[in-house]
Simulated scan of single mutants.
Amino acid sequence: MAFTNPRSYLLAGLAMTALTKAADFQETSDNDCDCFVTNGTDAKYFTSHKFYDFRSLSQYANVPEPINDPQDSSNAPPASDYFKQSPWADSWGTQAWNNSGNQDDEAKLLMVNSLSNVYIEKNRDQDPESDTFLTLRTMRHDEFQSAAEFESIPMSYHFLSARMYARTVGAKGAISAMFTYRKSDDPNLIQEADLEIRTIDPPDTIQYTNQPSYSRTGDTVSQATQNATVPRSWEEWSVHRVDWHPKTTTWYVDGQNVSQIGFQTPRDPAQVIFNMWSEGTVWTGNMTRGDAAYMQIQWIELLYNSTGDATTNSNGNVRHDVETKHVVKRKNDGCKMVCSVDESHKIGTAVLVANDASLVKGVYSPLGFAFASFVTLFAMV
């Protein structure tokens, strides 16, 4: 079943006998929420919510010309003032590093991340859903591959549900990705939960991995990765979601569980990273000179726990999150005011679903969602 609305993949509502109808849920501010509960096959609670909206930024729309010199590409300024100010500058770091010290074979290209490859673009679809979107570009030049990456400034995300409404388009030989990442000097100790779209693959397959996917001897670790068939082409606008929990990583496309891996699930606090890249290897593919590929994103949403670092919300109020556990309670308050973004009819906005976490148990369960899904699908036939 194809969905055209970015929220239509969500359950239309809870069963009629549940706490209340979805239409009756009250829109609320994040500041009034003690915790956020997710839907899906393995519902969990999170302390915090962030939403980044790139759909109405016409004043910042600017597509920089490709830069054909690797040094100039690396030194390029941001594409617009949007990337110099809040909320972007407080949350994300656009990258300008290159792989010059890590080219371990002749086939690998020099890859240069450029600030000019991350920009706001006018939506020129035939029937556009938005005025603008965020674009990450990778392009094959004569001497190198330019790429795009931005990383979360906080490195303290400790379990999360990350979503993006996005598509990947363009030439073969590139990879678009959304992933959690915890660095280690030992590649075999890196903790990483990957969503990778390879443009050399069919448009209905995506690679999902709890890294590392190779052993110290270079053998593939089959338990760590899945090449999954997805319900919607990655060339079309879709909600891509990763739920990183203590025991499993689960990935969704338009609300459908497409992959779940419990082997070497990341354990420790991490960053969130988005990138569009290629190195000319067998894994990425080798892009033809002059070709380019793009990841285009209308919005990003994060539900998450952190390791106790103080953060400042949009109203300037400092909020302290406690050490994360399987079910998280906000310091001093507990999880009394339970909110959801999945049950909201307005993208990026929370609704109050219960004033006691214990009331949500059972409604937000795999069985409860299966029943609600049945009711929803029956109503749509």
Rank of each mutant, 00 (worst) to 15 (best):
R7G: 04
Y9A: 00
L10K: 02
L14I: 05
A15P: 04
L19C: 04
F25D: 00
Q26W: 02
S29A: 08
D30Y: 04
C33F: 06
F36H: 02
D42W: 03
Y45H: 08
S48G: 07
D53M: 09
S56M: 12
S58V: 10
Y60M: 03
Y60G: 05
A61E: 10
P64N: 06
I67H: 05
D69I: 07
D72W: 09
S73C: 13
A79R: 02
D81K: 12
D81W: 09
F83Q: 08
S86D: 15
D90I: 09
D90T: 14
D90Q: 14
T94D: 12
G101N: 13
G101D: 14
L109M: 14
L109V: 13
M111I: 08
N113G: 10
N117M: 11
V118P: 09
Y119N: 12
K122I: 15
N123T: 09
Q126I: 15
P128Y: 08
T132I: 11
L134Q: 09
D142T: 13
A148L: 04
E149D: 11
E151M: 13
S152R: 05
I153E: 07
Y157E: 01
A162K: 03
Y165W: 05
Y165D: 03
K172S: 06
A177H: 01
M178E: 01
M178H: 00
L189W: 07
Q191N: 07
A193V: 02
D204H: 10
T205E: 12
I206G: 01
Q207W: 08
T209C: 07
N210K: 06
P212K: 04
Y214F: 11
A224V: 02
Q226M: 06
Q226E: 11
N227G: 01
P231V: 04
R232Y: 00
S238V: 04
H240I: 07
H240M: 08
H240K: 08
R241K: 08
H245A: 12
P246N: 01
K247A: 07
T249E: 00
W251F: 03
Y252Q: 02
N257F: 03
V258L: 01
I261P: 00
G262P: 01
D268C: 03
D268T: 11
S278I: 11
E279Y: 05
G280N: 05
G285R: 00
M287I: 09
D291R: 09
D291M: 08
A293M: 00
W299F: 09
E301C: 04
L302H: 07
Y304I: 02
N305A: 06
T307I: 07
G308Q: 04
G308C: 02
T312F: 05
S314P: 01
V318N: 14
V322W: 09
V322A: 15
E323W: 10
H326Y: 14
R330V: 07
K331A: 12
M337R: 14
D342F: 10
T349Q: 15
V351N: 06
L352S: 12
V353Q: 10
A354N: 13
A354C: 10
A357K: 14
A357Q: 14
S358V: 13
L359K: 15
V360I: 15
S365W: 10
P366L: 13
G368Y: 06
F374P: 05
V375Y: 14
L377Y: 14
